[in-house]
Amino acid sequence: MDELLVGLAAVLTFLFGWNNSSFLIGNLRGAGSLSFAAAIILSVLGLLVGALLEGSKMAATLAGSLALSTTYSVLLAVMIVSISLAFVLTLLDLPVSFSMIMVGAFLGATYAAGIPINLGRSSEVIGFWFLAPLATALITFGIYESTTSFASRFGILAVDSMNRAGAVVSGLAVSYTLGANNLGLFYAATGILAASAPVDYTVVLVLIIAGTVGIVALGRTALGGTMGDKMLTLSPQGVFSAFVASSIVVWVGTQFAFPVSISQCLLGGMLGAAYSRIVSVVNRRLVGDTLSLWVAAPLVAFTSSYLLVSLL
Protein backbone atom coordinates (compact mmCIF):
# COMPACT_ATOMS: atom_id res chain seq x y z
CA MET A 1 0.00 0.00 0.00
CA ASP A 2 1.12 3.52 -0.73
CA GLU A 3 0.89 5.89 2.22
CA LEU A 4 -0.17 8.87 0.09
CA LEU A 5 -2.89 6.85 -1.61
CA VAL A 6 -4.09 5.53 1.75
CA GLY A 7 -4.14 9.09 3.07
CA LEU A 8 -6.14 10.27 0.07
CA ALA A 9 -8.50 7.30 0.43
CA ALA A 10 -9.02 8.37 4.04
CA VAL A 11 -9.89 11.90 2.88
CA LEU A 12 -12.30 10.42 0.35
CA THR A 13 -13.86 8.24 3.06
CA PHE A 14 -14.19 11.31 5.28
CA LEU A 15 -16.17 13.01 2.48
CA PHE A 16 -18.13 9.79 2.01
CA GLY A 17 -19.10 9.81 5.69
CA TRP A 18 -20.13 13.46 5.46
CA ASN A 19 -22.08 13.09 2.20
CA ASN A 20 -23.78 9.84 3.18
CA SER A 21 -24.55 10.80 6.76
CA SER A 22 -28.14 11.48 5.71
CA PHE A 23 -28.46 7.80 4.76
CA LEU A 24 -26.25 6.43 7.52
CA ILE A 25 -27.66 8.31 10.49
CA GLY A 26 -30.17 10.85 9.12
CA ASN A 27 -32.96 8.32 8.78
CA LEU A 28 -32.37 6.98 12.28
CA ARG A 29 -32.26 10.46 13.76
CA GLY A 30 -35.26 11.64 11.75
CA ALA A 31 -37.25 8.61 12.85
CA GLY A 32 -36.38 9.38 16.44
CA SER A 33 -35.48 5.75 16.97
CA LEU A 34 -32.01 6.40 18.34
CA SER A 35 -29.96 9.18 19.85
CA PHE A 36 -27.21 10.79 17.79
CA ALA A 37 -24.52 8.76 19.57
CA ALA A 38 -26.43 5.47 19.18
CA ALA A 39 -27.07 6.21 15.50
CA ILE A 40 -23.35 6.83 14.96
CA ILE A 41 -22.40 3.60 16.75
CA LEU A 42 -24.91 1.57 14.74
CA SER A 43 -23.84 3.01 11.39
CA VAL A 44 -20.12 2.61 12.15
CA LEU A 45 -20.77 -0.96 13.26
CA GLY A 46 -22.56 -1.64 9.98
CA LEU A 47 -19.76 -0.07 7.95
CA LEU A 48 -17.12 -2.02 9.86
CA VAL A 49 -18.84 -5.40 9.60
CA GLY A 50 -19.68 -4.81 5.93
CA ALA A 51 -16.13 -3.79 5.07
CA LEU A 52 -14.57 -6.68 7.00
CA LEU A 53 -16.93 -9.41 5.81
CA GLU A 54 -17.47 -8.48 2.20
CA GLY A 55 -15.25 -5.48 1.38
CA SER A 56 -12.60 -7.76 -0.12
CA LYS A 57 -15.04 -8.69 -2.90
CA MET A 58 -14.62 -5.14 -4.20
CA ALA A 59 -10.81 -5.08 -4.00
CA ALA A 60 -10.46 -6.10 -7.64
CA THR A 61 -13.04 -3.65 -8.93
CA LEU A 62 -10.64 -1.23 -10.59
CA ALA A 63 -7.30 -2.81 -11.47
CA GLY A 64 -7.83 -6.41 -12.49
CA SER A 65 -11.36 -5.78 -13.61
CA LEU A 66 -11.98 -2.54 -15.54
CA ALA A 67 -8.34 -2.70 -16.65
CA LEU A 68 -5.86 -5.53 -16.42
CA SER A 69 -3.35 -3.42 -14.50
CA THR A 70 -2.84 0.09 -13.20
CA THR A 71 -0.14 2.56 -12.28
CA TYR A 72 0.56 4.82 -9.36
CA SER A 73 -0.22 7.97 -11.39
CA VAL A 74 -3.56 6.53 -12.50
CA LEU A 75 -4.61 5.83 -8.90
CA LEU A 76 -3.31 9.23 -7.80
CA ALA A 77 -5.39 10.94 -10.50
CA VAL A 78 -8.43 8.87 -9.49
CA MET A 79 -8.08 10.02 -5.89
CA ILE A 80 -7.45 13.69 -6.67
CA VAL A 81 -10.36 13.93 -9.11
CA SER A 82 -12.73 11.94 -6.87
CA ILE A 83 -11.92 14.02 -3.80
CA SER A 84 -12.28 17.31 -5.69
CA LEU A 85 -15.62 16.39 -7.25
CA ALA A 86 -16.99 14.83 -4.07
CA PHE A 87 -15.99 17.88 -2.04
CA VAL A 88 -17.66 20.35 -4.41
CA LEU A 89 -20.87 18.31 -4.72
CA THR A 90 -21.05 17.73 -0.98
CA LEU A 91 -20.65 21.47 -0.37
CA LEU A 92 -23.56 21.98 -2.77
CA ASP A 93 -25.62 19.54 -0.64
CA LEU A 94 -26.07 17.13 -3.54
CA PRO A 95 -25.88 13.33 -3.20
CA VAL A 96 -22.59 12.19 -4.66
CA SER A 97 -22.18 8.85 -6.38
CA PHE A 98 -18.65 8.03 -5.23
CA SER A 99 -18.70 4.80 -7.25
CA MET A 100 -19.58 6.53 -10.50
CA ILE A 101 -17.03 9.28 -9.99
CA MET A 102 -14.28 6.80 -9.15
CA VAL A 103 -15.07 4.51 -12.06
CA GLY A 104 -15.27 7.49 -14.45
CA ALA A 105 -11.99 8.85 -13.11
CA PHE A 106 -10.31 5.43 -13.31
CA LEU A 107 -11.38 4.87 -16.91
CA GLY A 108 -10.22 8.38 -17.93
CA ALA A 109 -6.87 8.01 -16.22
CA THR A 110 -6.36 4.48 -17.56
CA TYR A 111 -7.17 5.62 -21.09
CA ALA A 112 -4.72 8.54 -20.80
CA ALA A 113 -2.02 6.17 -19.47
CA GLY A 114 -2.41 3.96 -22.55
CA ILE A 115 -3.48 0.93 -20.49
CA PRO A 116 -6.04 -1.25 -22.27
CA ILE A 117 -9.54 -0.91 -20.82
CA ASN A 118 -11.69 -3.99 -20.39
CA LEU A 119 -14.64 -2.73 -22.43
CA GLY A 120 -16.78 -5.79 -21.72
CA ARG A 121 -16.43 -5.40 -17.97
CA SER A 122 -16.87 -1.62 -18.19
CA SER A 123 -20.12 -2.14 -20.10
CA GLU A 124 -21.32 -4.54 -17.43
CA VAL A 125 -20.61 -2.03 -14.67
CA ILE A 126 -22.28 0.84 -16.51
CA GLY A 127 -25.19 -1.44 -17.44
CA PHE A 128 -25.65 -2.30 -13.79
CA TRP A 129 -25.88 1.41 -12.97
CA PHE A 130 -28.95 1.63 -15.20
CA LEU A 131 -30.38 -1.64 -13.95
CA ALA A 132 -29.85 -0.92 -10.23
CA PRO A 133 -32.41 1.89 -9.76
CA LEU A 134 -35.00 0.03 -11.84
CA ALA A 135 -34.46 -3.18 -9.87
CA THR A 136 -34.63 -1.21 -6.62
CA ALA A 137 -37.90 0.40 -7.69
CA LEU A 138 -39.42 -3.01 -8.38
CA ILE A 139 -38.16 -4.55 -5.15
CA THR A 140 -39.29 -1.49 -3.19
CA PHE A 141 -42.74 -1.78 -4.74
CA GLY A 142 -42.98 -5.40 -3.57
CA ILE A 143 -41.69 -4.69 -0.05
CA TYR A 144 -43.86 -1.59 0.27
CA GLU A 145 -47.04 -3.37 -0.75
CA SER A 146 -46.27 -6.22 1.67
CA THR A 147 -45.37 -3.98 4.61
CA THR A 148 -48.35 -1.64 4.18
CA SER A 149 -50.69 -4.60 3.87
CA PHE A 150 -49.12 -6.21 6.95
CA ALA A 151 -49.14 -2.97 8.96
CA SER A 152 -52.81 -2.30 8.19
CA ARG A 153 -53.70 -5.24 10.46
CA PHE A 154 -52.17 -3.49 13.46
CA GLY A 155 -53.14 -0.52 15.56
CA ILE A 156 -51.35 2.81 15.77
CA LEU A 157 -49.02 1.84 18.62
CA ALA A 158 -47.86 -1.41 17.06
CA VAL A 159 -47.31 0.32 13.69
CA ASP A 160 -45.29 3.04 15.41
CA SER A 161 -43.09 0.43 17.11
CA MET A 162 -42.59 -1.37 13.80
CA ASN A 163 -41.68 1.86 12.03
CA ARG A 164 -39.09 2.79 14.63
CA ALA A 165 -37.62 -0.72 14.63
CA GLY A 166 -37.70 -0.68 10.81
CA ALA A 167 -35.63 2.50 10.75
CA VAL A 168 -32.94 0.75 12.82
CA VAL A 169 -32.96 -2.39 10.67
CA SER A 170 -32.88 -0.48 7.37
CA GLY A 171 -30.19 1.89 8.69
CA LEU A 172 -28.02 -1.06 9.64
CA ALA A 173 -28.61 -2.71 6.25
CA VAL A 174 -27.60 0.46 4.41
CA SER A 175 -24.43 0.96 6.45
CA TYR A 176 -23.46 -2.71 6.04
CA THR A 177 -23.82 -2.65 2.25
CA LEU A 178 -22.09 0.72 1.98
CA GLY A 179 -19.22 -0.66 4.05
CA ALA A 180 -18.91 -3.68 1.76
CA ASN A 181 -19.36 -1.94 -1.59
CA ASN A 182 -18.06 1.61 -1.28
CA LEU A 183 -15.38 1.17 1.37
CA GLY A 184 -14.25 -1.90 -0.56
CA LEU A 185 -13.96 0.28 -3.65
CA PHE A 186 -11.96 2.94 -1.80
CA TYR A 187 -9.66 0.19 -0.54
CA ALA A 188 -9.15 -0.94 -4.14
CA ALA A 189 -7.65 2.46 -4.96
CA THR A 190 -5.09 2.45 -2.14
CA GLY A 191 -2.36 0.62 -4.04
CA ILE A 192 -1.36 -1.04 -7.29
CA LEU A 193 -1.52 -4.44 -5.63
CA ALA A 194 -4.69 -3.87 -3.63
CA ALA A 195 -6.54 -6.38 -5.76
CA SER A 196 -4.05 -9.21 -5.44
CA ALA A 197 -2.38 -8.77 -2.02
CA PRO A 198 -3.99 -10.01 1.22
CA VAL A 199 -6.37 -7.54 2.85
CA ASP A 200 -4.52 -4.96 4.96
CA TYR A 201 -6.83 -4.56 7.95
CA THR A 202 -4.92 -1.51 9.16
CA VAL A 203 -5.95 0.31 5.99
CA VAL A 204 -9.56 -0.86 6.45
CA LEU A 205 -9.49 0.49 10.00
CA VAL A 206 -8.04 3.84 8.83
CA LEU A 207 -10.86 4.16 6.31
CA ILE A 208 -13.50 3.31 8.91
CA ILE A 209 -12.08 5.91 11.30
CA ALA A 210 -12.01 8.56 8.56
CA GLY A 211 -15.60 7.81 7.59
CA THR A 212 -16.66 7.95 11.24
CA VAL A 213 -14.99 11.33 11.69
CA GLY A 214 -16.89 12.57 8.61
CA ILE A 215 -20.21 11.40 10.05
CA VAL A 216 -19.54 12.68 13.56
CA ALA A 217 -18.03 16.03 12.57
CA LEU A 218 -20.33 17.03 9.77
CA GLY A 219 -23.31 14.70 9.86
CA ARG A 220 -24.99 16.16 12.93
CA THR A 221 -27.37 18.24 10.87
CA ALA A 222 -28.35 15.30 8.67
CA LEU A 223 -31.91 14.60 9.67
CA GLY A 224 -33.43 13.44 6.45
CA GLY A 225 -31.21 13.83 3.48
CA THR A 226 -31.77 15.27 0.07
CA MET A 227 -33.94 12.46 -1.22
CA GLY A 228 -36.23 11.86 1.68
CA ASP A 229 -36.79 15.51 2.46
CA LYS A 230 -36.68 17.42 -0.77
CA MET A 231 -37.50 15.05 -3.59
CA LEU A 232 -40.58 13.32 -2.39
CA THR A 233 -42.85 12.69 0.52
CA LEU A 234 -42.99 9.10 1.71
CA SER A 235 -44.59 7.26 4.56
CA PRO A 236 -42.30 5.55 7.11
CA GLN A 237 -43.00 2.22 5.40
CA GLY A 238 -42.05 3.79 2.06
CA VAL A 239 -38.68 4.93 3.37
CA PHE A 240 -38.10 1.54 5.03
CA SER A 241 -38.92 -0.31 1.80
CA ALA A 242 -36.65 1.92 -0.28
CA PHE A 243 -33.76 1.53 2.17
CA VAL A 244 -34.07 -2.26 2.39
CA ALA A 245 -34.49 -2.65 -1.39
CA SER A 246 -31.46 -0.41 -2.02
CA SER A 247 -29.41 -2.46 0.41
CA ILE A 248 -30.41 -5.65 -1.39
CA VAL A 249 -29.40 -4.27 -4.79
CA VAL A 250 -26.09 -2.87 -3.52
CA TRP A 251 -25.39 -6.20 -1.82
CA VAL A 252 -26.08 -8.05 -5.10
CA GLY A 253 -23.76 -5.60 -6.86
CA THR A 254 -21.06 -6.36 -4.27
CA GLN A 255 -21.30 -10.09 -4.98
CA PHE A 256 -20.42 -9.36 -8.63
CA ALA A 257 -17.87 -6.63 -7.71
CA PHE A 258 -20.01 -3.92 -9.30
CA PRO A 259 -19.39 -0.53 -7.69
CA VAL A 260 -22.83 0.95 -7.22
CA SER A 261 -24.24 4.08 -5.67
CA ILE A 262 -26.67 3.76 -2.78
CA SER A 263 -28.17 7.17 -3.59
CA GLN A 264 -28.86 5.97 -7.13
CA CYS A 265 -30.66 2.92 -5.80
CA LEU A 266 -32.51 4.95 -3.18
CA LEU A 267 -33.84 7.35 -5.78
CA GLY A 268 -35.21 4.40 -7.76
CA GLY A 269 -36.59 2.86 -4.60
CA MET A 270 -38.22 6.01 -3.32
CA LEU A 271 -39.79 6.73 -6.68
CA GLY A 272 -40.99 3.12 -6.76
CA ALA A 273 -42.63 3.59 -3.36
CA ALA A 274 -44.00 7.02 -4.27
CA TYR A 275 -45.56 5.86 -7.52
CA SER A 276 -47.08 2.77 -5.92
CA ARG A 277 -49.52 5.15 -4.22
CA ILE A 278 -52.12 7.19 -6.03
CA VAL A 279 -51.16 10.28 -4.07
CA SER A 280 -47.48 11.14 -4.06
CA VAL A 281 -45.47 14.32 -3.90
CA VAL A 282 -42.41 14.26 -6.11
CA ASN A 283 -40.07 17.18 -6.71
CA ARG A 284 -39.56 16.48 -10.41
CA ARG A 285 -37.02 19.29 -10.84
CA LEU A 286 -34.72 17.94 -8.13
CA VAL A 287 -35.11 14.40 -9.47
CA GLY A 288 -34.15 15.71 -12.93
CA ASP A 289 -31.16 17.61 -11.54
CA THR A 290 -29.93 14.52 -9.68
CA LEU A 291 -30.32 12.31 -12.75
CA SER A 292 -28.43 14.86 -14.84
CA LEU A 293 -25.72 14.96 -12.19
CA TRP A 294 -25.33 11.20 -12.37
CA VAL A 295 -24.68 11.42 -16.11
CA ALA A 296 -22.48 14.49 -15.85
CA ALA A 297 -20.35 13.52 -12.81
CA PRO A 298 -18.67 10.39 -14.30
CA LEU A 299 -18.09 12.23 -17.58
CA VAL A 300 -16.49 15.16 -15.76
CA ALA A 301 -14.45 12.68 -13.70
CA PHE A 302 -13.36 10.83 -16.88
CA THR A 303 -12.28 14.05 -18.62
CA SER A 304 -10.56 15.52 -15.55
CA SER A 305 -8.53 12.43 -14.78
CA TYR A 306 -7.64 11.99 -18.47
CA LEU A 307 -6.28 15.55 -18.54
CA LEU A 308 -4.52 15.12 -15.20
CA VAL A 309 -2.69 11.96 -16.23
CA SER A 310 -1.84 13.49 -19.59
CA LEU A 311 -0.35 16.50 -17.81
CA LEU A 312 1.51 14.38 -15.25
Binding site: R153, F154, G155, L157, A158, D160, S161, A165
Partner: peptide, 15 residues
Protein backbone atom coordinates in the same frame (compact mmCIF):
# COMPACT_ATOMS: atom_id res chain seq x y z
CA UNK B 1 -56.47 -7.04 15.54
CA UNK B 2 -53.11 -8.14 16.90
CA UNK B 3 -52.17 -7.06 20.41
CA UNK B 4 -48.46 -6.36 20.89
CA UNK B 5 -48.90 -4.93 24.38
CA UNK B 6 -46.75 -7.67 25.87
CA UNK B 7 -43.69 -6.40 24.03
CA UNK B 8 -43.64 -3.21 26.16
CA UNK B 9 -41.52 -1.44 23.56
CA UNK B 10 -44.10 1.30 23.20
CA UNK B 11 -44.77 2.14 26.84
CA UNK B 12 -44.18 5.85 26.29
CA UNK B 13 -46.41 5.92 23.20
CA UNK B 14 -49.13 3.91 24.98
CA UNK B 15 -49.10 6.42 27.83
Amino acid sequence: MVDLRFLSINRRERA
